[in-house]
Design a protein around this nucleic acid. Structure first.
Length: 492
RNA sequence: GGGCCGCUAGCUCAGUUGGAAGAGCAGCUGACUCUUAAUCAGCGGGUCGCAGGUUCGAUCCCUGCGCGGCCCA
């Protein structure tokens, strides 16, 4: 064992002293009868006389977060999953032996208390200990009581300490849980079936991204961590499930930033006989009711900016978004050289190998995307950057696709699905050409998916929503690491 | 990958134009049976991120590296 602090060793000695006195320091038979929040909810309305009359015997368990000792008595704050309650441990009441045992308790220990409620002179609802039991010694001391743990690196590496001492953190993750539950309920109530599809895939499909590679020993085969569940969910549409969704992790072998963690949570859902227009309506309804439900209003503040989720949201094409936010000539949409010239004029350094459509998208992301602060659907993406989406009937150079932008960020991506297997094969071939031209994020040929598609997929629309980014918005978090319990970090 | 910033006691932070370290909380000892940043008296605690360099002397200056943060790609 490495060298420990003096305080660690002192606590270890206290633990040994408890053992030496014949008391089990890690018992597992203590059952709290109530949470601290339950007690406050049910008894905080009663005055001292009413509490005295009732004398309900209650027991609580949790971590000591504060300790104020007197010679023969002590006030401690006990924190459990629901909150905190003050306890009063008095030598006269618990007896000499138990009080000596209590003297070995430190801030950070897990303890159990049973007793009755009373009010202190300052009117704080407090449990007077009739019994006290150590349940688990905290050998490592907790951070400082005024400032808590503020070192960002320590907060991420030791999230359990962050959660213990920084109350706002628990609220973020409680909200995250509520958000996911709301979405499950919302889709389930619309007859969507929740499914789970492979995380380990032979061909990483469904998105333009670099995958993690792994290896299956028994099969003697390379596998990839999925970058998206899309192609499996669409197999289920082909199968006739008609409405499916999955909330699960995707893995992308790319940079880490305030917006990116290598593993992140994605909601994907697919609905047969729907179009991307239908999904815009559904998305407005789902997210606006989610925001209303979680935040109590459809207007929220994100990093100082007010965001209004009340529907309807603006819908604007990629083309219009670019011309609205730049002085680009419409010739860039029909002439690749014009597009390249314009891209260069705004400082974009793009490979000559980029397709015309990719140049357009780069221009869009540079000049327009950050400008869409209020919820906005950006529609009609160029064909080549959307190899799984259905061509627009009126303009086959674009697809029936939208992305939802909020606070200048992509929150959702959806389209009417390409269900023509002949067209799909051609799109895959175009992607292979892109890959050969040096784009290592281009889609792979997937014969197994084509084989499924050849059985016939009903007209369908599908959507993906980045759960982490959504949670960031609703919890006013600046970094994705603030909404992921254990974000990826370099080894320390 | 690039730029800027940070890394000092368990935690939160000072500090040194280069003479080799400080506070508060936490801890320890004592007093104290209504405190809530409890109080009072006393005490202990450091690889100043790591490795080189410059220097009589480096936590401080220089170089490299590590980890983290923010911004850019």
């Amino acid at each position: 064992m490495d060298e420990r602090s003096a305080e660690f060793n002192t606590r270890l000695e206290k633990l040994q002293a408890i053992k030496d006195s014949g008391i089990e320091p890690y018992p597992n038979d203590f059952k709290p009868s109530a949470t601290t929040a339950f007690i406050i909810e049910n008894f905080d309305g009663l005055d001292a006389a009413a509490l005295e009359d009732k004398k309900d015997n209650l027991s609580i368990a949790g971590r000591i977060m504060a300790k104020r000792d007197f010679g023969k008595a002590s006030f401690i704050h006990i924190q459990d999953r629901s909150g905190r309650l003050q306890a009063y441990v008095k030598k006269d009441v618990v007896g000499e032996e138990t009080f000596a045992l209590f003297k070995k308790a430190d801030v950070g220990d897990i303890v159990g208390i049973s007793g009755t409620l009373f009010r202190t002179r300052t009117d704080e609802l407090t449990i007077e200990a009739a019994t006290y039991a150590p349940l688990a010694k905290g050998l490592s001391p907790l951070p400082e009581k005024w400032h808590g743990l503020t070192d960002v690196e320590a907060r991420y590496r030791q999230r359990y300490v962050d959660l213990m001492v920084n109350p706002g953190v628990k609220e973020v993750f409680a909200k995250r849980s509520e958000i996911v539950r709301f979405i499950r309920d919302f889709l389930s109530s619309r007859e969507y079936v929740e499914v789970e599809t492979p995380m380990l895939q032979q061909i990483p499909g469904g998105a333009a991204a670099k995958p993690f590679k792994t290896y299956h020993n028994a099969l003697g085969m390379e596998l990839y961590m999925r970058i998206a569940p899309e192609l499996y969910l669409k197999r289920l549409i082909i199968a006739g499930l008609e409405r499916v969704f999955e909330i699960n992790r995707n893995f992308r072998n790319e940079g880490i930033s305030t917006q990116h963690n290598p593993e992140f949570t994605m909601l994907e859902f697919y609905q047969a006989y729907a179009t991307f227009d239908d999904l815009m309506d559904l998305t407005e309804e789902m997210i606006s009711s989610l925001v209303q439900n979680i935040c109590g209003a459809t207007t929220i503040t994100y990093q100082g900016t007010e965001l209004d989720f009340a529907p309807p949201w603006r819908r604007v094409s990629v083309k219009d978004a670019i011309t609205e936010h730049s002085n680009a000539d419409i010739a860039i949409f029909t002439d690749k050289a014009e597009a390249q010239k314009f891209a260069a004029s705004i400082g974009l350094e793009l490979s000559d190998k980029f397709s015309h459509d990719k140049v357009i998208i780069e221009i869009f992301e540079s000049v327009a995307e950050p400008k869409f602060i209020q919820p906005t659907f950006i529609t009609h993406y160029p064909l080549e950057v959307s190899p799984l989406a259905r061509k627009n009937d009126g303009d086959p150079s674009v697809v029936d696709r939208f992305e939802l932008m909020v606070a200048g960020r992509e929150i959702a991506n959806a389209f009417s699905e390409l269900n023509d297997p002949v067209d799909q094969r051609e799109r895959f071939m175009a992607q292979i050409a892109e890959r050969e031209a040096g784009d290592d994020e281009a889609h792979h040929m997937d014969e197994e998916y084509l084989r499924a598609l050849e059985y016939g997929m009903p007209p369908t629309a599908g959507e993906g929503i980045g759960i982490d980014r959504l949670v960031m918005l609703l919890t006013d978090s600046a970094s994705i690491r603030d909404v992921i319990l254990f974000p990826q970090l370099r080894s320390s």
